[in-house]
Design a protein around this nucleic acid. Sequence first.
DNA 1: TTGTACGCGTTATCAC
DNA 2: GTGATAACGCGTACAA
Lengths: 316, 316
Amino acid sequence: MSNRLTIKDIARLSGVGKSTVSRVLNNEGHVSDNTRERVLEVINQHSFSPSKSARAMRGQSDKVVAIIISRLDSPSENQALRAMLPLFYEQGYDPIVMESQFSSQRVGEHLKVLHQRSVDGIVLFGFTELDVEQLMPWQDKMVVMAREYPGLSSVCYDDAGAVSLLLNKLYEKGQRHISYVGVDAKDATTGKLRSQSYLDFCQQHNLTPAIALGELSYHSGFRLASQVLSPQTDAIVCASDTIALGVTKYLQEQQASNVRVVGIGNNPLLKFLFPKSFSIDLGYEQAGNAAARLLLEQVLRSAAPQQIIIPSKLAD
Amino acid sequence: MSNRLTIKDIARLSGVGKSTVSRVLNNEGHVSDNTRERVLEVINQHSFSPSKSARAMRGQSDKVVAIIISRLDSPSENQALRAMLPLFYEQGYDPIVMESQFSSQRVGEHLKVLHQRSVDGIVLFGFTELDVEQLMPWQDKMVVMAREYPGLSSVCYDDAGAVSLLLNKLYEKGQRHISYVGVDAKDATTGKLRSQSYLDFCQQHNLTPAIALGELSYHSGFRLASQVLSPQTDAIVCASDTIALGVTKYLQEQQASNVRVVGIGNNPLLKFLFPKSFSIDLGYEQAGNAAARLLLEQVLRSAAPQQIIIPSKLAD
DNA sequence: TTGTACGCGTTATCAC
DNA sequence: GTGATAACGCGTACAA
């Protein structure tokens, strides 16, 4: 079982010293092509690979990063996560994935474990109840997604911009009675930012707002739709595509087929089921990409913390 | 930056030898309550935690497992993955997550990396094109999901059982013209097994089969629905809830509201949008649970490989 | 160009 | 009950 060869074995088998093998492994110069070849031969023959733990202990990094996601089954976070993985692989970093399930305490537990493993960096998906204090020790090796905290790197979405993009589009099309179904303001981004943007727009354009706030689920959308639907309503903006699905179902039952529903998230299912709807791409993929890049910059080149905002755009 | 304390520092700070600190850390006996307390004090005060790399090198395992998932955004795999994570955390194992994207070659690359890191075990989500040969070196520290290979541990779903469960239920309700929309037979489980089960049932009950096979997407379901819909059709069984969504949309457009659509996967959205439909719970969560347990058994107690089949059940 | 000796942080084996 | 000391596999000054 534990018959893993060591650098010493390779040295013996190829008739050189350990250090020469080490040099070959790390592609250092100062080793004759002759011996280099011989050593590589033996290495490949036994498919030897140096122990990461030993390397890590010798002062090098372990080449491990962690990604603390809120919920793996959230389509938005999922997309962002999928986008960062390849970048980490590419740089030889192995990603440990952990779920916080929106529990600040669980984040704390995870951080403790990760400290013990001395991971090189962390991408953390932020959420409302998150206690920022416990993040400070990681300051220079952490990137936070979807929330902005002073002193910490972050990659955020343009929540306000997304909503105004939707509203402008509807306004262009001549809609003047636009309602909004969103998320409670205790959620800072999906909740407060987006609904505030709606209210601002209404004020600017002299529209009468009709707003209802609840949870981030289609059930909530379905339930709240009735509250914002009046005979004149010609469009409903939803804080997310999930909510939009619920709203659309309600409209369908009410035979209100002339109301246009739009959402945020670019969920292809919404477009498929209800072709008249449209949606905003918040840039999850781009965000994942940016986060990975940012973290690697910080870890590899000890770059300074940076805050990035991903621009929203109308989905095709 | 690299101001991590070591066991030596703790020893010095609490006026004892390194060995004693080690004993305290590992909850060994043979240490007076007095000193134990003193050492713990210092440990907590500096929130010290021993280096995993050093421990790993000292012969212990690194306490890392890997999970190679096909696609993170597959709801089924996602659910299974979410179910295993807590079990690994609980046992002190940190999970590295990798995506294969149904590429056997990518699996190979991942395995190479994981070998280098000498991970303790691997959960691998199987797929059609997967080359089994490359898995053999991992034989005793691997669990394969959704596919069965000789000599390897596996956790599988009861594909055939799921379909016959659906069909029986429909048959009970008096339906006699039941069509099937599924996945191409080149996919062994979701494709072949499920459609074969449908054909078997039809033969046993003297029903005329109407079957169409394509891809695992709602677009495919939408496209194929027309091929299996006749005036007498009173139900359509779908190989997955995703397909069912596509089929239902087609029926809706055709005003064929008297056809009952059923699927597999227990996707809550299907039930929400189309309350008359029902679905099968393949037991993703239970499967993830079983896989994690199985792997831990093998790794911790070097248990023998085992093949598990998760029973399907009608969703609520 | 190559080999030797030492140290990284931890645990195991001894002595005391 | 406790403390030295030797390993574990690797990188790296330094010597040859």
